[in-house]
Design a protein around this nucleic acid. Structure first.
Lengths: 340, 340
DNA sequence: CGTCGATGGACGTTTTATGTCCCGGGTATA
DNA sequence: TATACCCGGGACATAAAACGTCCATCGACG
């Protein structure tokens, strides 16, 4: 039942918008009894003319009637609304979640896919699909796109396809070596994405656990510098969000730092930075590439993460307040709303 | 599952058309492998430009890819088509039926509702709804609309609602007394329709089983003449279609005529005329009103009938070749196609 | 009996869709 | 290897639809 809508959404992306619009017009008329165009327009926050277009259409379909006293719902319209109840509830439960997260955290767009990535690989794939769609939506010609590593990012890469709009794009890792395993690290993801879309890529080869001296000389290297400059001038960032302690363990952070993270109350990780509950940065991985302060001037920052277990972490990162777009799943979204 | 599509068809008929269009584009590309824009346009019977609009859109969505050799389906497009298979079949299976009937019998529009009126009252109601919608579609200002009797016509009347486009219309019975019971006869239907839509009506009070002399004097009557003239100058006819023998019995046709009907192979009845399998008129009820030859110059002839048992009868009437619009149900439609 | 709010018509403007043509380039075939 | 063909994509004028805005008329209500 839900699939049918998801499938249709692929072919008719604005299906839901139109359906919701027409539904809410009908619904408003139903609860109002008899209502005039102007009143209805202002209560629905539409211009009078565009409402009129829809109303004429609905009248054509026989779903509402109008005479000189105003508009009211017809019998078939009333029946339709009743039949639609479950569909609307299902289809727009998530939309409501999206809107309340967007509003609460001040984000331009939130996309919530149904399910829980923790328990269903299908949801994780869906998250990747949605992330890829979001990227495709915001990308424009010849953009530089910085990406991070992680399994969610890998799923996004999987779901990208050759596309003329990304043909001229550059994919770069947002930050150098962060101690991830090879197939999940940012370099790998960037190259896969470039391959899938027909775009180009540059990599940042920064070994992990470098001595201070070697590190300093490395970041002086003109080749590296060039890539870092490209990264920091990117227009779009797509990054995952992780649980702080899980990430620390995965990256084999030393015991002392781990203890310090625990003491500072680190909850979330994104782009090599660790955040506490309030969204403050409590630690930073020592490597090159994008810095947190760069995010302010970057036009599109897309965060992608899902699963109930990550809900709190996502909320922390959102609270830091640099995200423009969030792609998550239902389970995480519910958690996020709990941590308001 | 099916309900959701039915609901969408009611609320979003325009989007369903678009969905079908995009689906068939994708499908054609799938079966063609690699195909060029111009070739595809002609095979889909679209202009090149409008196809291009859709193709650009589908490319944007990542459902198809194109290079200098032509367009081909992408992996996600292929997957989508597979997922959509059942949806399309459900949503448009009837559409296919509609189109083949329209084509086979040379009718402008055929509307098929799901189900079988013989076994489901819901389908019968739906037939009425569809019939009412068809009438609403074709009616224009101040039309004269001739209607017949019967239970299906009564359902149509039930589903009409007050409508500005019918406010100036006249409803008249297509033919005088045909021996139906009062609540199903054309006079009743016409007056109900007028009441429901806010239109006006004139009736033909012609008693059944009149002697020849009385009949002759009746049709000379100026009042009657006036109505008959109105009826014969109508722009729209909406009529039911019945099984010949069932109708003969219901109308208490005398034994001799019944025998003659049987001999002639009468199968169907419409507008007081009886038709054989080939669509020839084999008998005519003796009353005033619309004549069969009037149909030629009447702009919109709408036939409404459903139920598996009536399929053959409908086919006979269609074969007579005066129908412009047919509203029927799935069961009847399948029968109609059998009697090609 | 007058006032208010409603619909539906009208009209100019803006945005979008469409018809049409053409160019550079890649493919297949000779 | 040369050539003829068909491809996608850019360009542009035009038709069509959407939209903002205003107004005439009608019915309900005080």
């Amino acid at each position: 039942m839900r699939e049918i809508l998801d499938i249709q959404k692929q072919l008719l992306p604005d299906l839901m918008d139109i359906m919701k619009k027409r539904y809410s017009i009908l619904h408003h008329i139903l609860v109002s009894g008899v209502v005039g165009r102007r009143t209805l327009a202002s209560s629905l926050d539409m211009t009078e003319r565009v409402l009129r277009g829809e109303v004429d259409f609905l009248k054509e379909l026989g779903l509402l009637e109008s005479d000189a006293t105003g508009m009211k719902i017809s019998e078939s319209g009333r029946q339709l609304l009743e039949d639609m109840q479950p569909i609307i509830k299902m289809a727009f439960g998530l939309t409501d979640l999206e809107e309340s997260i967007a509003k609460s955290y001040g984000i331009s767009q939130v996309i919530v896919v149904p399910g829980d990535s923790d328990t269903s690989v299908f949801t994780k794939k869906e998250l990747g699909r949605a992330g890829a769609a979001a990227l495709r939506k915001y990308v424009s010609k010849d953009d530089i796109i910085a990406v991070t590593g992680g399994s969610t990012m890998a799923q996004i890469a999987n779901n990208l396809a050759i596309s003329s709009s990304m043909k001229g794009s550059w994919f770069v890792p947002a930050r150098g070596g962060l101690g991830e395993s090879v197939d999940m690290q940012a370099n790998t993801i960037a190259s896969i994405m470039a391959k899938k879309t027909g775009g180009k890529y540059r990599l940042l080869h920064v070994p992990d656990h470098l001595g201070e001296e070697a590190y300093q000389s490395l970041i002086q290297d003109p080749q590296i510098q060039e890539v870092v400059d490209a990264v920091r001038s990117c227009r779009i960032v797509v990054h995952g969000i992780g649980d702080a302690m899980v990430m620390a363990r995965r990256r084999k952070v030393d015991a002392e730092t781990t203890r310090s993270l625990e003491l500072e109350g680190a909850l979330a990780e994104a782009l090599g930075y660790y955040f506490d509950r309030q969204g403050n940065v409590v630690h930073k991985m020592p490597t090159v590439g994008l810095r947190l302060e760069d995010l302010q001037r970057i036009e599109v920052v897309i965060g992608v993460a899902g699963g109930k277990s990550k809900g709190e972490a996502i909320a922390s990162v959102l609270r830091h307040g640099q995200e423009d777009v969030l792609v998550t799943d239902e389970a995480a979204a519910l958690e996020i709303m709990k941590h308001l």
